[in-house]
Amino acid sequence: MPVSVSIALATPGQPALHGQAATRIRGGRADVRKTRCVATPVAVHQSPVVKAFCERLVKTGKRKKVALVATMRTLLTTRNALAR
């Protein structure tokens, strides 16, 4: 199981179809997810690399919250790669 699914940063369900409500993130390890939800906006504000990544996603049409979740997943993947 990918780490992003285990802490519920990825939705394991079906993608939303046109006209339906967007899928919601739920389950997983809430304490880790809450820490990531606080740390990601700080990283976007402080790090030029992370800020450029998030702004690129927003410019390509992603909603801001979706871009933040993608940035959370990227930061998590980077952190795990550095830990290995």
Rank of each mutant, 00 (worst) to 15 (best):
V3C: 09
V3P: 10
S4T: 11
V5Y: 14
S6K: 10
S6H: 02
S6C: 07
I7G: 08
A8P: 11
L9Q: 09
A10M: 06
T11G: 07
P12C: 05
P12F: 03
G13F: 04
G13H: 10
G13A: 06
Q14G: 00
A16L: 10
L17I: 01
L17V: 03
H18M: 07
H18P: 06
Q20S: 12
Q20M: 12
A21I: 09
A21F: 02
A22G: 08
A22I: 05
T23V: 04
T23Y: 00
R24L: 10
R26I: 09
G27A: 05
G27F: 06
G28L: 14
G28D: 11
R29K: 14
R29M: 13
D31A: 13
V32P: 04
R33Q: 15
R33G: 11
T35C: 15
T35M: 14
R36N: 00
R36Y: 03
C37D: 08
V38E: 08
V38A: 10
A39W: 03
A39P: 05
A39I: 11
A39D: 09
V42L: 15
V44W: 00
H45Q: 05
Q46C: 13
Q46R: 15
S47K: 07
P48G: 11
P48C: 10
V49C: 02
V50T: 04
K51A: 12
A52L: 05
A52K: 10
C54T: 07
C54W: 00
C54S: 01
E55K: 08
